[in-house]
Structure formats: C-alpha cells, structure tokens
Design a protein around this nucleic acid. Structure first.
Lengths: 232, 232
DNA sequence: CGATTCCATTTTGCATGCAATTTTGCGCCG
DNA sequence: CGGCGCAAAATTGCATGCAAAATGGAATCG
C-alpha cells in the first residue's frame, strides 16, 4: 500500500463529472457569460450540460461555498452580484494580499522567477503598445498571480486566487479605463519590476498596494457606466 | 412578487439537511473529534448521521472546497492534515489578516465595539487568573474575531474565519504552552487593547502581527510534542 | 379595477438503485 | 515464507423517482 501522492500532472483532466461541471460553470461565471442575478434552474442546466442533477447539484454547492453563486433553500441558485461596497472591501483585502506577496517575493523569489516576470512584463508592454486590451488584461492578471506564486506561500496563493476569481468580472468590464490610466498602470508596473529586481520588499509591498488602490479607484469611478446587471 | 431579502434572523436553524450536516461535520473536524487522515466512508457516516448519501455527499463537497477534507475521485474523503510548512504559511497569512484588521479597526471601530472588546478582555484575564485554559482559549479566539469584525470589512471577516477554522485544531492542541508564554500573551493583549483604545492603527497592526508571530513560534516549538495524528 | 386566494405547474430536496472503480482476501507460484 | 494475480466484496459516481416547497396564473372578492 502506498500513501504517497500519485504523480498527478497538477490539475489535468477532470476525472469526475461534477469536477468538470465545476470548472465549466466557474469559467462561465467569471468570464461573464452568466450575468449576476441570473437564476440557475437545475433542469435547465442539466439539459444544457448533458448530465443528471446529482453531479450538477454537487458542483453548485461548491460554487456557493466559493461565493460565486448564492444558494437559498428551496429557491435555487442565482449568480452572485456585488455591491459597490463589497467591491471596495475586496480591493482592500486584495491590497493586503499583494502587499504580503510583495514583501515575501522580494526575498524568496528565485532568479528564474525574476527572469520570467521580466519576460511577462515586456510582453505586456507590447500588448499595451498594440492597444490590445484583452491580451493586456490577461497578462496583467497573470503577472500579479506570478508575483503571488513567487512569494512561496501556497495558502496565500489559494486565498488570492479565490478572491481574484470573485472580483475578476467587474474588473474586466470596467477596464475600459482612460488611456491616461492605462499609461499610469504601465508606469507603475515598471516601478514594481524594478523594486522586485532590487529585492526591496518594503518598497515592493507599498508599490503593489498603491497600484491596486489606483486600480480600485479607476474601477469604482467607472462602475456607474457599467451595465447594472453586470455588477448587481 | 418581492425580490428583497426575507427577514432571515441571520443563520438561524439550518432548513436543509445538507446544511445541517455541513455544520455538524465542520464542528466535528475543527473540534478534533475526527483526527486528520481519518478516512470518511459515506455509508458509515450516513448510518451514523441518519441521512442518505445524497445530502452527505453535497456536504462533503463543500468541506473539500473549504479544504477541511481531501476528496480524491473514486477513493473517498479523508480529514485533511497539515504539514509544519503549511501551518507556518497559514500563520504568515493570518498575520496579514490581523494587521489589516488592526489598521482598519483603529479608525472604524465604534465606541460600542471598544467597550465590548474591553469587557471581553477583562473576562479573558479572569480566565487566565483561574488558569481555565479552554475558556481562555475560546475567548481569545472570540476577541481576535471581534477585532476583525470591528474592521468593518465582511470580505476580510470571511477569509479570516475560513483560515481560522482550518488552523484551529493544531492551535488548540498546542496551546499547552508554558506558563511564561501565557503570561506574555496576556501582556501583549494589554498592549493591543491600549493601541485600539488610542486608535493607533499602525501600532495596533504591528502589535497584532507580532502577537500572532509569537503564537506561531510557540506552537511550532511544541508541535513535535503533539500526537502525530493530530497534525498529520 | 386592484388585491387576494386557490390550484396547477414547476422546481428543489432527498432517497434509492445500478454501474464502474477500488479495495480486500485468498490461492498460487517462485 | 514472501510476492503476484485474480475474484469477491465494498465503495464511490451517477441517474432516476418521489415528496415537499415554491412559483405562476386565473378566478374570486372587496
């Protein structure tokens, strides 16, 4: 009998049905295919996804635990919506996550981490020059996620990912920010990369937190312009 | 038809079976009735809890999402265990949570919050004098939770609660610390209360983080003495 | 004309049954 | 005596069926 982990290639293919459903539904919610407030009827989803209710219900329970949907007894599920206050609170928390990640990454990041982040940064800059907002947005998220990973604290990475998932949709929808804000964001990223290269944890933490605060400010300023159903 | 929230008295009684199970199982794991690594067989649990497999499986999925159990496809569930590294990472993250809570609570706490915390603090001190460790432990957790609540950020409170739930068992098991550490903890709490009363956010954040770091240090020093099955 | 009550329909919650995978026990061979 | 293979038993994953609750709408009453 062997108790050690099998050589799983990370989260490869989902072997169970409910796990696959979970991933698909999570993506659909985060990508914004399902608007907040939308009611999810089990029968409807089972027909659409080609499975029975049992695995679907299991997936819904998990999504509710992740707060991506709201599940009320006997009244079904609806896509969770975020108030402006909740978004503000999330950014507050994200700021603490990023600051901690910065402080840790400054001392724990490997040289390979730094090189990879530099490469990602340069490519993101290229997306900026080409004004390819979706690609820029994705790579931006990836860079921040990579910094968190370089902090070498899987618990932090978990919590970060969960919060990032919940807040991603309004962030994307509101990313039609002004060209000026975009330029400022790039500049801030330059500073972040420099602080990381210098392994100045205190500075990196401050820059990351400020950067996020600016993002929050830009988002909240543009929130009223975003379709109401998109944020709740 | 009315879309506003019904007048739910918060989380009263669980109306659904799986929700009730979820609470019971969560408590059993956190309280340590179920040792880490223990295999959970569905049939066994259903007989023990008097329900069918369907609601039980839904509850297990949620517990897995909260990382209180590990669920491997076709191979069932076992109580999650924590390595020493994971515990260390959790404390690192908890430190950031508490620091943020302290910074926010210093400016956002109401006078009622301060009064209630003072009362709790005094009672905890009484438990200390009586050397009632379990009562002290519970009230200590409650005080920290109350500070987090006073920070006025529900998202922070959520993340904090989830992490605290996962780490609570080893903390309790290792709380047979030396009398000296216990005295030091009380002293640190005095400082924390003072900083809060003075609404000095920076100081409060630092004191809370240091306090937690000391707890982590004491716990990790005593970990080897704790039964292996209790931490994994 | 608006609000209410009642009933048909829909939808959720749970139990059970079956197929597939894993685990376990035993005989067999080296 | 120890390792291997195979079959029986146990266990998990999923689908379906039934009961309870909620939803929608028409008929009724004020």
């Amino acid at each position: 009998m062997n108790e050690s982990h099998p050589p799983l290639p990370a989260n490869s293919q989902p072997v169970t049905l409910h796990d696959g459903l979970l991933g698909r539904l999570r993506d659909m919610i985060i990508e914004g295919e399902l608007a907040p407030g939308t009611r999810l009827r089990e029968r409807e989803l089972t027909e659409w996804l080609g499975v029975s209710r049992t695995p679907l219900r299991e997936a819904l329970k998990v999504l509710a635990a992740e707060r991506l949907i709201e599940l009320t007894p006997n009244r079904g599920a609806r896509i969770a919506s975020l108030t402006e206050d909740e978004i503000q609170h999330m950014f507050e928390l994200m700021g603490a996550f990023e600051a901690l990640a910065g402080r840790l990454a400054a001392t724990r990041a490997s040289e390979a981490d730094l090189l990879e982040l530099q490469a990602m940064h340069l490519q993101m800059r290229a997306h900026y020059v080409r004004k390819d907002l979706p690609a820029y947005f994705r790579l931006n998220q990836a860079i921040h996620r990579r910094i968190v990973a370089a902090a070498g604290n899987p618990m932090l990475a978990q919590s970060y990912d969960q919060l990032a998932g919940r807040i991603r949709r309004p962030r994307f929808l509101a990313s039609q920010w002004s060209a000026q804000r975009w330029a400022q964001a790039i500049e801030e990223h330059e500073g972040i990369m420099a602080a990381l290269a210098a392994r100045d944890g205190a500075l990196l933490a401050r820059l990351l937190e400020d950067h996020l605060a600016h993002k929050a400010e830009a988002l909240l300023k543009h929130l009223p312009e975003v379709p109401a159903e998109a944020v709740g």
